[in-house]
Design a protein around this nucleic acid. Structure first.
Lengths: 165, 165
DNA sequence: TTTTATCGTAACTTTATATGTTACGTGATG
DNA sequence: CATCACGTAACATATAAAGTTACGATAAAA
């Protein structure tokens, strides 16, 4: 199977949104991410359900951040996505009768759970604020970045919806 | 993607083979594993190329172990499989221009690489002998196990090919 | 030498899942 | 009431593992 890039994608969206005043539509986000509005809505739905985001219908609607970047971590975002599988490998059979397979599973699970734990721990240690700060540091160093962040949707600025990333 | 169970599968095969005198055919292994002989040959091919296993064609042919269980680790087996992807998550884009995405990737990669390293380290710490010993311990504790291990292929014993697991 | 057993491998099918797309319903704004 | 924007079902596409079929090559046995 292809690798799951939803966490990566939703983080990208969140950081962009943090740079914009006012709501951003799924369509504008989709253009920036080179994807489809429905994909955007799909990966954002869980975060809305957790009240990390807010979405409004109709004229002037779109997505807004409704969480505190200082406290929200990648782990929270990951969980809001529905905590999809982290590992690409697994056991052939979960509760096998065969003692050989039980021994194999035990050894594999030790390693797999340890790796999962590391991943989740790390996710829990990175706040969205830290990510955003890293972005700003990179931005300062390079001196420029894509148009998206400069847009101000609240003033009807069309850059937001036209921005590429 | 479904989860990749090749490592789990090939370990299962190896441990079973260790209990049998003489060669075991792909067909017998496939029956024990409830799968297809071609699948068996597929997951074993890499180990043969590394001289961890030997396969012989024709009458009396089949698979034999050609490695030292005391020194071979899960990591060696994993590598012989072609070192397939360990993680189910990844970055949307590998070398993005967007600074936001660069920041996201950096944070994700930190966590992802750390998890991979843990997994590979653990794999490197488990020998096939340790796995086999664990199986024997379980076997002793339970007092019985599936018919496969008791078979002796070298004496034309049909149990090996008929065994279920 | 012919038959049989067995692997090697290509090609195809099946299945699962993420991603992409279309269509249409709902609600909010002007 | 026209338009904008989300919500979501349904369908299409892409990718990769697993399963299957077919056939060629090789080695032992009859």
């Amino acid at each position: 199977m292809r690798q799951d890039s939803r966490l990566s994608g939703v983080l990208h969206v969140l950081l962009h949104m943090a740079e914009v005043n006012g709501p951003v539509t799924s369509e504008a986000l989709a253009r920036a991410m080179h994807t489809n509005p429905v994909v955007i809505r799909r990966i954002m739905a869980g975060l809305r359900d957790q009240d990390f985001l807010r979405s409004d219908k109709g004229h002037g609607g779109g997505w807004r951040i409704a969480c505190d970047f200082e406290t929200l971590t990648l782990l929270d975002v990951y969980k809001a996505l529905g905590a999809p599988a982290l590992l690409a490998m697994g056991n052939r059979t979960e509760a096998p009768n065969c003692l050989v397979e039980q021994a194999v599973n035990a050894a594999m699970n030790d390693a797999l759970f340890a790796a999962e734990a590391v991943l989740l721990t790390r996710f829990g240690q990175v706040t969205l604020a830290a990510l955003s700060a890293d972005f700003h540091a990179r931005s300062k160093q390079r001196g420029n970045h894509c148009a998206f962040e400069k847009a101000d949707a609240s003033e009807g600025n069309k850059m937001a919806s036209d921005a590429r990333c």
